[in-house]
Nucleic acid binder design. Sequence first.
DNA 1: GGTTACATGTAACTAGTTACATGATTAG
DNA 2: CTAATCATGTAACTAGTTACATGTAACC
Lengths: 204, 204
Amino acid sequence: MLDLAVLGLLKEGDLHGYELNKRLKALVGGYATSFGALYPALARLERSGWVRSTAEAPAVEAPAVETDDDAVAARTRRNRRRSGRTKAGRTRKVYRITQEGESHFLELLQEDAGNERRFRLQLAFCRFLTPDRRLELLELRRAHLMSVQAKGRRDPEQSTDPYVRSLFQRDRERLEHDLAWLDQLIADERRNQQGDPGAGPTHP
Amino acid sequence: MLDLAVLGLLKEGDLHGYELNKRLKALVGGYATSFGALYPALARLERSGWVRSTAEAPAVEAPAVETDDDAVAARTRRNRRRSGRTKAGRTRKVYRITQEGESHFLELLQEDAGNERRFRLQLAFCRFLTPDRRLELLELRRAHLMSVQAKGRRDPEQSTDPYVRSLFQRDRERLEHDLAWLDQLIADERRNQQGDPGAGPTHP
DNA sequence: GGTTACATGTAACTAGTTACATGATTAG
DNA sequence: CTAATCATGTAACTAGTTACATGTAACC
């Protein structure tokens, strides 16, 4: 899972571990993201040849908006200027995605559809897919959710416990909401594929 | 996590692994439940003294409604009658929760509030808590969700990518829905604690 | 002068998945 | 006769968490 997230983030620009962790935190809703998972993952990605690291030299493409973080970074760059040390203490290792990493990323971006967390990441990076692949991803997810829904209808939970009933009621509502959301995304996708290519999903 | 689920299910009646797995599947929404996790868990629970197993002798309290499964079981019981063998091939190991298991269960039923999966199970078994403990559980979960919401408002995601934006929009909606649901549960809980003790949560 | 943020890593642990091995019984 | 269901288990793997170790530098 982390592989997908890391490669996706590196596709937008070179980054070091600490910064990756921050962006990861923002991206993955729900669970934690920890250095204890990230650093070993980066080492693994490098062994596999999907990323390459260099000490410092952060070729960070500055985003349009200068965030707090970028402001700090700029100040630091002024203050620095000696050796491979950074703003604070240790040397940073800046990671860059390789050619092989890019193709591996595109594979990861498509496989499956059943895994909630994976789908989240896939959607977050689906702009890197071709329009038809993207549509396929959404349709696959939709099919998965529909099958979950169908299964729920086949053998309905009929617990007598009010808390359990309430829980399952919420499940059904969440499922419906998710399906409606997906349908909207799919509809937007289809519209943009034919008519006006360039517009993104609608959001009221 | 499995510990909580297994102990909770065993509190309602003795069960063997295979049957536990089926009930688990119905209970945990979202993820899979596998024998590969369950059987080792049962072994661990037994080593810890929280459950005890006996070969066969299923003292299954028949539920009010005779399900397909119970019908099959009844038929089988008629057809059987020789040795510790069951309906199909292998001897079943029937698990029963112990006294120590019960108190351990009550501990598990309360700790934390941040873990989504755990909370799900806690709610599913919260009928075994005292009313005030139950209310505490709901309030803790609510506090957790509120803090997530607050954090989201402090540093709002402002991605330019429409898919990412849509994703975060769904996150916010889901959070709101969950909070409303929890508030309803809490309100019901309070009402029942004072006025009419015995009625469960309302569900429109 | 203490807290927070920066920065990288390891080790031990928690939690669940996939695939395999084995074998009986029953329904179609 | 064959596919599905019942039944228990192991091994290897995937994925993430918590706690620790280590040290700098900026902020108040």
